[in-house]
Write a protein that binds this DNA or RNA. Sequence first.
DNA 1: TCTGGGGTCCTAGGACCC
DNA 2: TCTGGGGTCCTAGGACCC
Length: 422
Amino acid sequence: MKEYVALIDCNNFYASCERVFNPTLKSKPMVVLSNNDGCVIARSNEAKNLGIQMGEPFFKCKSIIESEDVKVFSSNYTLYADMSNRVMSIIKDFFPNTEIYSIDEAFVSIKTSNEALLMRNIQNLKKLILKWTGLPVSIGISTTKTLAKVANGIAKKGLGLSIIDDGDQSRELILKKVKVDEVWGIGKRLGKTLRAHGIVNAFQLSNLDHRWIRKKTNVSVLRTVMELLGVPCIQFEQIPLSKKQIITSRAFRKGISDFNLLEEAISTYISRASQKLRTQNSVCSTITVALSTNRFNGRIPHKFLFHTKSLQPSTNFTPTLIKAGIKILKEIFEERIAYKKGYVFLSGIENSISRQYTFEDNLDLLAREERLMRVLDRINNHYGSDTLKYANTGTSRGWLMRRPKKSKNFTTNWNELLTISI
DNA sequence: TCTGGGGTCCTAGGACCC
DNA sequence: TCTGGGGTCCTAGGACCC
């Protein structure tokens, strides 16, 4: 029996999701933008070929987008999340030992002595994902996660499936072609440091002296190096770990100086964050609220104002968190400043079962709070996310982000089903 | 005019303990 | 004149990922 790791990655995920429901976009350059249509966060291959960069601000590439007739979409996370769930459930049907790594990627761990069968299964999986969801995926196979990532990168450039065998001499040839900062875990900064020492490709990285790596960098890089050598060092996490920190932050449509509007926005972010907290059965002991001004506006000094409060006992009760958060907001708020972004951080997270109480805590009241949140979540899950909301979160919501070019929620809303006229 | 959002891990250094 | 040694915990900041 040999153990393999495969990385299954959806190609240009957000852009591909839009294409599924709009076939006229096939072979056309297209991009998906971040919230408030700020930056490019997904590109079709045709858009990549036009030189549009990942993360590029929209206004900077607007001229090329217009001149080349690039189709533009605001992000539609409801759609992408639903499409992701579909892909992941197909993968899990094939390979139960699956780690969902991100919205568009999954690692699978496979023990087999029949390599030919494995390859057939993988190819079938790829075909079925395309057939059942309309989404193209690339698959890289090797013996460690890092090598599977390398293989996936090659698959993306070629036929969508690639294998790096640790016994294969071609591993050397392949790793020599991979730039050092394209290796998973080596970013810009480390890449620069490594290049300064003459290490430019993944093969050179894999041959470095371990003591030198430890001295010059950190233990994460050493793990990466071991993985390139075929020694698994990065754990396979089949059961998703619960979050240690929950963040809800959004840029506002435009700068806000009005306290009441900020209160609405922050209350809304807190209800989102506490709902995330409850879905993983956790409570938190710390809340931080922050406001910042536009960091790209060179004419005014950039401000990032924040305070933190401790909560005793730890909680996931939205009203308690809103109360604490608004108190913080009052402390940090300064008049006559246009705030561009609001943040809520929940930390000190633990499982609600292990939560600690004091003798003063009213356990009956806490139990009632818990029941209330259960009912609230159930109603919102069933009838839509804002069916029941807190008055603090406001009704006008003039600060809400802009998504003017958003496609419909084709798969999650009966009123927005795709219609085809013949 | 216009620049996303949400996470994790590691390390160094300070505070503190006996 | 000369001021130990060994350890833990916490936090901020940096680096990385998608």
